[in-house]
Each structure stands twice: as C-alpha cells, then as structure tokens.
Amino acid sequence: MSFWQATMKRSVKLSRTYFIMGVLMAVFGTAISNVYSLIPADLLNIEGTSIDLMNSMPLVSVSLLSMSALMFSMPVMMLFVFDKNTGVLEYLLSTGLNQFDVYKGYVKASLSLASILLVFSNVLNTAIGIYLGTSLDFLATVVVLTFAVGLSGVLLGAVSMMAFSSFQKTQLGANQPLGIAIGMVPVLPALMVPFIFPSYALVIIISIAIMTLLFSLGLLLLSGRLIPREKLLP
C-alpha cells in the first residue's frame, strides 16, 4: 500500500462524523437540485423580482455537492496536522521522502476521498434527475461543474491548509478550520453567481474552478521550494 493510500485509509478511520456530514450534504444538494422539477413553473417565476429561480435553483446543487466533497476530505487535512504534531512527518522525512512527496501524499488522499463522494452524489443526482425528467444536458453540466468546483476547492483547501499549518508559529491543534475556510473560496461563488448573474453563471463558475485549480497546482508544485523541510517538524 502506498503512502497516499495508507493516508486515505487512516483518514477514513480518524473521523466518521465528517463522512456522515459529507454524505448528508450530498443528499441535501441532490434534493435541492431536483426539487424545482416538482414545483410549478409559475411559482418559480415570480413577477417583479430580478432573481430567476427557475434557472438559478438547480445550479445551487453544484456548490452544495462541492461543499460535501470538501467536508468528506476534511479528515485528511486534520490528519496532516496530527501527524506533524506526533512526529510522523519528521520520521517520513528521515526515510528519504522530501516535503513535496509528503504534501503530494496528503493531497492525493484528499482528492481521492472527494472523488469518491462526488461520484456517489453525481450518480444519485443524475439518477433522480432522469427519473424526474430533467434534461440530460443540464445533468451533464452539473456533473462537470461539480467535479471542477469540488476538486479545485478540495485541492485549494488541502494545499493551503498544509501551507498555513506549516507557516503558523503556534500549533493550534488538529481541528484546523483554515482549510475549510479557504476551500470555500471557489465554492461560494458557485452558490451566489446563479442568482446574481444567471446568464453568465456557467462561464463564471467554470472560470473560477480553472483558476483555482491552476493556482493550487502551482502552489503544490512550488511547495518543495516555498516551504522548508523544518516546517514539517513538530
């Protein structure tokens, strides 16, 4: 078993609460995505309001499903801080790994866990959507957007979490909320943009996801140079 696989397995055992919350949020996101199909169109098109609920509501599921992925991968980020404080990271460095190998292991574990949940939530969402007669084009769009926003949010959360955990001078324990907060940066626009700019929502969301992805990858690739090895020590 490779390092990242072992990390993923350990994270699953570390906290089941985050996984349950992640699954519940995914179910909630799926419900939001599909509930509009059951509401008469004239109730959604309220006269006198600039908000187009008919087109906006389904896209809200993108941010909710992405948040669920972030929640699902949270134990990996907690594990990183935990391993740093108990000297596991120090020992890993002594075995010949460098800081990039270590960061990569935790990031891969985060993305893998997030992917598992995104596959589950999208299968659920698509199955219910097909049953309710939602257009296949729209369901495919949700799948693409959810993976783009969800994985970029998880990547940004994981990388910045490790970077900030390494930068902080005082150890604040394993319950590090910074990763969630930063991971929410690309996810929140996905929640708001459909209501504010419904016509450009798709373009804006996908652009933010791509920028986040590139920024996070850049940060990860530079981590070996930007973050010295000693920052992994307890």
Binding site: F82, T86, G87, V88, E90, Y91, S94, T95, G96, P234
Partner: peptide
C-alpha cells in the same frame, strides 16, 4: 538514507 534509522523523542507513530 535507507541505511539509517532515526529515533526521535516523539513516538512518530499513527496513534
């Protein structure tokens, strides 16, 4: 490095 064993004063084990 694989020829070296390092024991720190911390456990360095998955608790």
């Amino acid at each position: 490095r694989k020829r070296i064993a390092y024991l720190s004063h911390l456990s360095a084990l998955p608790e």
